[in-house]
């Protein structure tokens, strides 16, 4: 499988899904880009208006389909553009980690972090750190158990 090794063909490269909220973390990611802060290429960002849009189903689906990690980024508590959204994110995050543990998925594969629009460096650091953490966990078990299927198969 192409995606299980980097362009040099060495080792395992995790594939990480990132949800970033429009007002803070997505802007922080943009700033990291504008500042040309280099980071590992393992993350794929999905934009949502608020981190509170992320329902547990997204995280569970992603992990059960074999993605190696899910990172949800939001505004710092107290700074949510919609006042309270990130409080929901925080609470859901805590519960969801317990659930993942219960079903046998390493809870570290799912992380919630706060990145503000001016924290380009923090976004880059977060991507680095989370990529390394998930790389150290190895491939997400469901993936290595999944047999190759037809492309486009959901």
């Amino acid at each position: 499988m192409v995606s299980s090794s980097d362009s040099l063909g060495n080792g395992f490269e995790p594939k990480i899904l990132v949800f970033a909220c429009n007002w803070c973390s997505y802007a922080g990611a943009d700033l990291a880009g504008v500042s040309r802060l280099q980071m590992p290429p393992n993350c794929r960002v999905v934009r949502v208006m608020c981190s509170a849009r992320v329902r547990p189903e997204f995280v569970i689906t992603a992990l059960s389909k074999g993605l190696d990690g899910v990172l949800v980024l939001g505004c710092h508590p107290g700074d949510c553009h919609y006042s309270e959204g990130n409080y929901f994110t925080r609470r859901r995050g805590l519960l969801l980690r317990k659930l993942l543990e219960y079903v046998g998925i390493e809870p570290e594969r799912f992380q919630v972090r706060w990145v503000s629009a001016s924290e380009g460096a923090k976004f880059a650091e977060t991507v680095e750190r989370v990529t390394e953490q998930i790389r150290a966990l190895g491939p997400n078990r469901p993936r290595s158990e999944v047999l190759p299927t037809e492309p486009g198969d959901k």
């Binding site: 189903e57 689906t61 993936r143 492309p151």
Partner: peptide, 25 residues
């Protein structure tokens, strides 16, 4: 549901990304 950010739309993105790993790019 949210217009422009529906569950179906987001799940399709997740599915598309996951497919890459099984189908190859």
């Amino acid at each position: 549901q949210q217009r422009g950010f529906s569950d179906r739309q987001v799940l399709s993105m997740i599915g598309a990304l996951a497919e890459v790993m099984t189908g190859g790019v």
